[in-house]
Design a protein around this nucleic acid. Structure first.
Length: 498
DNA sequence: CTGGGGACGGGGCCC
DNA sequence: CGGGCCCCGTCCCCA
């Protein structure tokens, strides 16, 4: 069949670094696979040319089995992906706040109280999630819903949704997997993305890979259905979603029945793009390997922020090529800029629902060819979706770099009290703390003679002057000046209505 | 037990 | 982009 034949002719070679390449198709002829493969081949060649790749042309191929064996031999003991807290840190769970390295003997009260406070993480108690824990977790809401995907396939044959990279086998992948079902736990050579040690561990030849090399691999050797790991989303690269449809499995195939039995098909072609400042052939880590890299190089957790930012999870948008296939296809495919500028049905693509229509799962733009949809998704939807930044110390993610930097300060605690040595994440927190030493209370109550060092405490105090407090018990309508009082009121069973 | 104060943490917003 | 500030929140302690 066309797909298998193509896979057999893919780019496996000793110079070609396979980095998370999957190509598993069902009944490709139903989706214009011939056209897709033609376009993909041209695209790959163009990208190789664009990136100055030298090496064998497509057709020099290794089998996936051999490739996987090579991977295992090259990296027999790759560590599993893990969130590695910085050295000297206590705990690694989300929301668990490490003790400051600058602190002297912990103040017993706050040591206990903080630990207890952090134990009630917002992840375990979403109902009590404080505002301060409202961390944007972009991908957490984007885990593919397989049931939904399957249900939508009929109406939208191109209903391939950007899944998430499984994080690779060694802590952070470098591909985007479309439509889940990729083993997020990232066994090396088995659906994993190029991990943080990919350049070293993934090269079958043992040589440092050249970044632009491309590979396609039929993931037909999967012995078990891949799954999503929802904890890591560090992804990068270029991926093409291949079409899915509920079809019978090809009979003449060596593919695992479990895979073919699935109604969805995996397709992920990843291009390890040269990163900014990353020389070809080097084994320097990509910008995505925040936790692992930092923990490995032993950087002190309290290192200056600017240093820590060297490993920030920058958007893969920065690494996108700006050239596209010269011959993307004879049909209505638009140039990428046009696609970005609103290309879609109004620009020549057939209306939704017409034969051969390819619809973007996210923005519902339709394209006449799959290649058009692919380009649209690479330049538009997926890139927008991947504009997030991950903390190197924990698994929190933010939509802006500034927010991430602010969060990282909660780990590095750069503001240190000169009097007691206590460390704080922000200067104004330190300033407020210093008031506890000086006794300064700049916030005076307008109703009484009391003054406070903390504005929040003044605000809470002002509640005491009000007959109707801010927090009201829904059972007995009694009001309280503080949430904690209301909570205690409920928990103590002192509410007469309860 | 309850109300309140004190100290502190974190994200968002504004400049 | 960074600093300052705002707002919301928590917990502990004490009267």
């Amino acid at each position: 069949m066309a797909c298998a034949a193509y896979v057999q002719d893919c780019y496996y070679s000793s110079q070609c670094v396979p980095t998370c390449c999957f190509l598993t198709c069902l009944s490709p002829q139903d989706f214009g696979m011939a056209h897709l493969l033609k376009w993909l081949t041209e695209w790959l060649l163009d990208v190789r040319q664009l990136l100055g790749v030298t090496g064998p042309e497509p057709g020099v191929c290794r089998t996936p089995v051999r490739w996987q064996r090579s991977l295992r031999e090259a990296a027999p003991s790759a560590p599993p992906p893990a969130l590695v807290p910085g050295p000297g840190r206590t705990g690694g769970s989300p929301g668990q706040r490490p003790l400051s390295p600058h602190l002297g003997p912990p103040r017993g009260i706050h040591g206990t109280h903080r630990a207890r406070a952090q134990s009630a993480t917002p992840f375990s108690l979403p109902g009590k999630m404080p505002r301060s824990f409202l961390v944007k977790k972009h991908w957490s809401n984007r885990i593919p819903n397989y049931g939904q995907l399957e249900s939508q396939k009929g109406a939208s044959p191109a209903g391939v949704r950007a899944g998430e990279c499984g994080g690779g086998g060694v802590g952070g992948g470098r591909c985007w997997n479309f439509l889940g079902n990729i083993d997020g736990e990232g066994k090396e050579g088995e659906g994993g993305c190029q991990g943080s040690r990919g350049p070293e561990t993934m090269a079958p030849s043992g040589n440092p890979p050249t970044a632009p090399d491309l590979c396609l691999r039929a993931d037909s050797q999967l012995s078990r259905p891949p799954k999503i790991n929802g904890s890591r989303y560090t992804c990068e690269g270029l991926v093409f979603p291949l079409l899915l449809q509920d079809r019978a499995a090809p009979s003449a195939s060596n593919d695992a029945p479990s895979l073919w039995d699935r109604k969805s098909v995996i397709a992920c072609i990843s291009l390890p793009l040269p990163l900014n400042g990353e020389a070809r052939g080097t084994s320097s880590p990509g910008p995505l390997e925040i936790s692992v890299v930092d923990s490995l190089d032993g950087r002190a957790p309290g290192a200056p922020l600017k240093e820590s930012l060297n490993h920030l999870n920058l958007s893969p948008l920065l690494n996108m090529p700006k050239q596209w296939p010269l011959n993307p296809g004879p049909e209505v495919d638009k140039a990428p800029d046009k696609l970005l500028g609103g290309g879609g049905p109004q620009e020549g693509s057939p209306p939704l629902g017409s034969v051969g229509c390819f619809e973007c799962f996210d923005c519902h733009k339709t394209y006449h060819t799959f290649s058009g949809l692919s380009k649209h998704r690479q330049l538009h939807c997926d890139l927008q979706a991947c504009r997030f930044f991950s903390c190197k110390y924990c698994d929190k993610e933010y939509s802006s770099l500034g927010a991430l930097k602010m969060h990282i300060r909660t780990h590095t605690l750069p503001c240190i009290c000169k009097i007691c040595g206590k460390a704080f994440s922000r200067p104004w927190l330190l300033q407020g703390h210093i008031r506890t030493h000086t006794g300064e209370k700049p916030y005076a109550c307008s109703h009484c003679s009391r003054a406070f060092a903390d504005r929040s405490n003044l605000r809470a105090h002002l509640q005491t002057h009000s007959d109707i407090k801010k927090y009201q018990c829904k059972s007995c309508t009694k009001t309280f000046s503080r949430m904690s009082l209301l909570t205690r009121h409920k928990e103590a069973g002192s509410c007469p209505a309860s």
